[in-house]
């Protein structure tokens, strides 16, 4: 049993730059998503009929409804961002069921990177939608005294995003690894199914939370006006 919970397995050092296993799995996940979803996009563009195209449109409509409800109006950038987040996390969880494949989301650095992207996307989207003053005003909203609390909230929720994803994925992965080490055949299957379910659920939760955070930054002025 290899207990690489916080350590990182470096495959090869390219000079000063290490090439880690997480990097490899994330690239593999990206390539898998690309290969799996590019035909969907082509199918939708070529012919609106067919199962692939129907699945793609269904998914996109679901995503658009989600974003529209969160933000208050359709937002292309947030659609792409949230959709990619969901697809990446879910795809990683799916690939994680392959034997010997540790999904990149079991790495704390990877989940921290995703959370950091969400953290950065919040002011980006807020400033783009409301302007710098309109966005910054949000931090002083009910009272200027709450500015530190806002900051702490931003940081802590980012930390929570990263740790939640990492903890869920890693716990599932660890449990499956433990059972595999103990029994081996067929017994880990239900736990793997649970792991897969948790992975998809976490992808959904991560996506929703990211949408809610970014959407709140976008619609700050609207709430003020309401």
């Amino acid at each position: 049993m290899s207990a690489e919970v916080f350590t990182e397995h470096v495959i090869v050092w390219l000079g000063p730059v290490p090439l880690t296993r997480t990097m490899a799995t994330s690239v593999a996940t990206s390539l898998f998503l690309w290969g799996a979803l590019a035909p969907v996009g082509r199918a939708v563009a070529r012919a609106p009929e067919g199962r692939l195209a129907a699945a793609g449109r269904l998914m996109y409509r679901f995503l658009r409804d989600l974003v529209t409800e969160t933000v208050g109006h359709p937002s292309r950038g947030l659609e792409v961002f949230s959709g990619s987040l969901f697809l990446f996390i879910a795809g990683a969880s799916l690939l994680g069921q392959l034997p010997g494949f540790a999904p990149p989301t079991t790495n704390l650095a990877a989940t921290s990177a995703l959370a950091a992207l969400v953290f950065l996307a919040v002011p980006f989207a807020g400033i783009r939608a409301r302007g710098l003053a309109g966005y910054v005003k949000r931090y002083f909203q009910p009272s200027p005294l709450l500015f530190p609390l806002h900051l702490v909230s931003e940081l802590s929720r980012t930390l929570a995003l990263a740790l939640r994803l990492f903890g869920n994925m890693m716990s599932g992965h660890l449990i499956v690894a433990l059972i595999v080490a103990l029994v081996g055949l067929l017994v880990p299957v239900p736990l793997m199914a649970l792991d897969l379910l948790i992975g998809l659920l976490q992808a959904y939760i991560f996506t929703i939370l990211a949408s809610v955070y970014i959407g709140a930054a976008i619609r700050v002025g609207e709430e003020e006006g309401a």
Partner: peptide, 22 residues
């Protein structure tokens, strides 16, 4: 949707505990 969000929030504490245990 809101229920999942709230669940995730509450679950965060348990996850933090899990991370600390790890």
């Amino acid at each position: 949707r809101n229920q999942f969000v709230a669940l995730a929030m509450v679950e965060s504490t348990a996850i933090f505990c899990l991370v600390i245990a790890l």
